[in-house]
Write a protein that binds this DNA or RNA. Sequence first.
DNA 1: TTGAAAGCGTTACCAG
DNA 2: CTGGTAACGCTTTCAA
Lengths: 344, 344
Amino acid sequence: MTKKPPQRPATLADIARHAGVSRSLASLAIRGEGAVSPETRKRIMEAAAALDYRPNLVARSLASAEAGYLGIVVGEIENPLQAEIAKLASGLARAEGYSALVSIDADTDEKAEEAIRTLIAHRVSGVLAIGAPFEKPAIARVASWIPMVYVGRLLKVVAVDSVTTDDVTGGILAVDHLVALGHRRIAHVDGGASPGAERRRDGYRRAMERHGLERQIRIIEGAYTIDAGARAARALLAEPDWRPSAVFASNDMTAIGLINEAMRIGLSVPGDLSVVGYDDVTLAGTETLSLSTIHQSAGDLASAGIAAMMARLAEPDAAVSKILVPPRLMTRRSSAPFSATAAA
Amino acid sequence: MTKKPPQRPATLADIARHAGVSRSLASLAIRGEGAVSPETRKRIMEAAAALDYRPNLVARSLASAEAGYLGIVVGEIENPLQAEIAKLASGLARAEGYSALVSIDADTDEKAEEAIRTLIAHRVSGVLAIGAPFEKPAIARVASWIPMVYVGRLLKVVAVDSVTTDDVTGGILAVDHLVALGHRRIAHVDGGASPGAERRRDGYRRAMERHGLERQIRIIEGAYTIDAGARAARALLAEPDWRPSAVFASNDMTAIGLINEAMRIGLSVPGDLSVVGYDDVTLAGTETLSLSTIHQSAGDLASAGIAAMMARLAEPDAAVSKILVPPRLMTRRSSAPFSATAAA
DNA sequence: TTGAAAGCGTTACCAG
DNA sequence: CTGGTAACGCTTTCAA
């Protein structure tokens, strides 16, 4: 049998009456503010406990000047990286004294804008946008309504604070790693127009050049999906005259598709082909897959995002900041030293 | 340059003054309630538009008897199924006239309880719990505070409304499919004590018996992870005297690990081994993996959850309901007809 | 059809 | 230290 919740939740007035004091005094005592004599404070706290008092947060935020809410809008909550960032961010917001109002179904620009309107109607102090809205005009428009920090994409042209992984460095890290292992024929399966893809590609190109391998640059168009990776593998491994000994994929899913297809073709990974992915999804870390990859830190992205938000709130007119969070190379078993015998 | 938001958001009083009417009338007009003459309504709406008025939802919910909030608590937001359910549920809640207050970092029972306390402090009418709290005592305690519907687990002993996939049927579906393909030696890699695992196992056992295959029942202990699947594959394929031609895995991740390991060992899937998973994660549907599996419908779970919530809210004393959502078999390429030649 | 006034549960200000 | 009293911005009677 489900116990029925008490008919009417106790209010401050109830506990004030119960303790024989005024509402204001009860309010102070409960929040631990001001100077209340230990004697009366004790009485008030007991009354509160007796009546199972829980402050009505709605009333509180209406009454207090600063509502103390922070909005978090997530574009693709089914994307584990975004989910993780949002989760950590809401914890960090709480630690900063804000409570997070989270909107998780902003999967189109219209819905994102509507979600943000609603958050504004709740008088949030700012909005942390994670992966949404998607289009730049929408981002700019929304940012004109309320202080906003965008996590997940580098907003070069739009004047909005943004936090993202330093993907150029990520690309460089991947190539450097493979070169250090002795590879020279290193191909890149890119992510087309997906967020970050361009910069990962730049990192790849730049690193290859720095290592004097500009002649070995091969870029296959891909996407952030398993199937795109498999397709890329077929394209790549079909080239008769130039067979890579290593591939840097722009995304873990792409890498997984690639590996799968390579294995189907009969190649061994990393025996015949070393592969490095990007993102470090949970899957990548499993013993079974053990995919070398570039780790994006949800924790760093979340805390940089919240920090940027706090800065913006404290100083609304400060210069727009573009924060780059450093990625990290995770060395696992899908990449191994180049062996001459393996090369075709 | 980020445009600064207007100093003070317009209030109802502002637009009333602007339109030369009383606040009450403005309120009615804006909500489209009551009978307001078209003439004045027009004037009021224009004033609202001119001042870019947005009702303060905090004030509104304080003033109106029913706050109109629904709490949604998610245990593992990085789990795409839970994320999807939560996302759809928040849309459905809106459609029912509630706005969803979502808590995504309830990953321990303590945090879940705290999150629900906070939701209650916001005067939500009820809480939709998705995968959290985890332990039964915590679930029961929380449900004694506020109307709650639990999605993702069948709560047999706890008297709380629950919605979950009919996992017994799911298990049966998987076995029936494999039997129809001609398989007889069908093993099951279970999910240990994970949610749903017991019932999927029951379904497997029951279906095997119904098909007269009780002698072929083999259950390997597993878990909902890739690595567990790989381990199970090693255990299973090592048995010299009894080599299955098909495996029903309790979870897609388990299935993927299993397939991966089988391929490594040199078996072909589905040539030598047919595999059926459970959940239908995005990965399963990719061309590359093409995993036959039992689909859990996030949409059905979400709408059953919201429906149960509405029912509970409408009739607080109704009998506790245990809703089972039917699963669906997805036939893909990881399962194929039994071929005698392939059997060891 | 319209307006005045009384809340909703807090916090905040200001005397005592 | 303590207790009125006025907001906060809206909804909701209840009269007019």
